[in-house]
Computed example of a mutant assay.
Amino acid sequence: MERIVFYECSQSCAGTTVERFLRRQGVSHRVLVDLKNTPNGLTLNGKPVRTIDRLPPEGKLRLCLPETDRSDTIPQADIALDIVYEDDDLFVVNKPAGLAVHPSPQNRENTVANGLAALYTTRKEPFVFRAIGRLDKNTSGLIVLAKNALSAGLLTTQAAQKVMHHDYLAVCTGMLPDEGTIDAPIGRADGSVIRREVRPDGDHAVTHFVRLAYRDGYSLARVWLDTGRTHQIRVHFAHLGYPLPGDFLYHPDFSRIQRHALHAGALWLRQPVTGQPLHFTAPLPDDMRIFFPDA
């Protein structure tokens, strides 16, 4: 399988080398190397072109990206993925709680990657797993998976620059203020590999929230982040005194929910090749909706 991408030359790029032009589009060094090593990987108006050649004021630059990588070590599993969106460059998947994104030594077959491996086999296409960012196993919601090396690099840059970002829905114990910002550094708790806490020597972490509803001792909050620290939302709300129910690390109250009540419910990004703005939402899952049936 290969991805074909076209770029139009214009007067503004006339005289620019092919390499510089493509780097300005966000094409990574690795992808450029692959293009140079691929027969007819780069052509201009139908003729082979080198990365050192200069572009004319008019023309069509064609990139041919064959899939050279493989994720053959990821076993297939019969996992039905809720694919919210798909195009030539990416998937958006609504991940349920309890399903990890990546395989691990302790969990090799119950992940998004395993389900995607099976999907690619049915399509008879080479499979490479390229997750952009991640969600904790017990956090539900929207994740992005790149289909090729070009889109993976472009989407990773979007994530780093906050062009691609989420809003979360969190159920918190108690009545939250109407809105607020939690600016408190987060670091690893002493004596623990996975537990995090607010501590003076931690990494800078900022969380914003707005309370959307309150019912029977719980608040529903829309949450967005300036930073992306491990367990940031869970740690910050526990620190503030409004922990998420069902959180085995920070508030192990399983009376109403069996996992931390956190959902990545909205996603913004740009289509990596065309730049078209994309926006997706995923409804509150049933185990969180029991707190707010009318949400």
Rank of each mutant, 00 (worst) to 15 (best):
residue 1 M to N: 07
residue 1 M to D: 10
residue 3 R to K: 06
residue 10 S to P: 14
residue 12 S to P: 02
residue 13 C to A: 07
residue 17 T to V: 04
residue 19 E to H: 05
residue 21 F to W: 13
residue 21 F to V: 05
residue 22 L to T: 11
residue 22 L to P: 01
residue 29 H to Y: 14
residue 32 L to Y: 05
residue 33 V to W: 11
residue 35 L to M: 13
residue 37 N to M: 07
residue 39 P to G: 01
residue 42 L to H: 06
residue 48 P to E: 09
residue 52 I to D: 15
residue 55 L to M: 09
residue 55 L to E: 15
residue 57 P to V: 10
residue 59 G to W: 09
residue 59 G to K: 10
residue 61 L to N: 05
residue 61 L to H: 07
residue 61 L to R: 02
residue 62 R to L: 15
residue 63 L to G: 01
residue 67 E to S: 10
residue 70 R to I: 11
residue 74 I to M: 08
residue 74 I to K: 06
residue 78 D to L: 06
residue 81 L to N: 04
residue 81 L to S: 04
residue 84 V to E: 09
residue 87 D to W: 09
residue 88 D to M: 12
residue 91 F to D: 01
residue 91 F to S: 01
residue 100 A to T: 08
residue 102 H to F: 08
residue 102 H to E: 13
residue 104 S to K: 10
residue 105 P to K: 09
residue 106 Q to N: 14
residue 108 R to Q: 14
residue 110 N to G: 04
residue 111 T to D: 10
residue 113 A to P: 00
residue 115 G to C: 07
residue 119 L to T: 13
residue 120 Y to I: 15
residue 125 E to Q: 14
residue 126 P to K: 02
residue 127 F to G: 03
residue 129 F to D: 03
residue 130 R to W: 00
residue 131 A to T: 08
residue 135 L to W: 04
residue 136 D to I: 15
residue 137 K to L: 15
residue 137 K to Q: 15
residue 138 N to A: 11
residue 140 S to R: 11
residue 140 S to I: 00
residue 141 G to M: 10
residue 154 L to H: 08
residue 154 L to R: 08
residue 155 L to G: 07
residue 158 Q to C: 12
residue 163 V to E: 14
residue 164 M to V: 03
residue 171 V to I: 12
residue 172 C to Y: 15
residue 173 T to H: 11
residue 176 L to I: 06
residue 177 P to D: 09
residue 185 P to R: 02
residue 188 R to F: 00
residue 191 G to A: 03
residue 192 S to H: 14
residue 195 R to H: 07
residue 195 R to Y: 01
residue 201 D to W: 00
residue 202 G to V: 05
residue 206 V to P: 03
residue 206 V to M: 11
residue 221 A to Y: 11
residue 222 R to M: 08
residue 227 T to D: 00
residue 230 T to Q: 10
residue 232 Q to T: 09
residue 233 I to A: 08
residue 234 R to K: 12
residue 236 H to C: 13
residue 238 A to F: 10
residue 238 A to G: 12
residue 239 H to L: 13
residue 240 L to P: 04
residue 241 G to H: 07
residue 246 G to Q: 13
residue 252 P to L: 15
residue 253 D to P: 14
residue 255 S to W: 05
residue 256 R to G: 02
residue 256 R to W: 06
residue 261 A to Q: 10
residue 262 L to D: 12
residue 267 L to W: 03
residue 268 W to G: 06
residue 271 Q to H: 10
residue 274 T to K: 11
residue 275 G to P: 08
residue 275 G to V: 15
residue 278 L to M: 13
residue 282 A to I: 09
residue 285 P to Q: 09
residue 285 P to I: 00
residue 287 D to G: 05
residue 290 I to L: 08
residue 290 I to A: 05
residue 290 I to N: 03
residue 291 F to Y: 12
residue 292 F to Q: 04
residue 293 P to V: 00
residue 295 A to D: 04
residue 295 A to T: 01
residue 295 A to V: 01
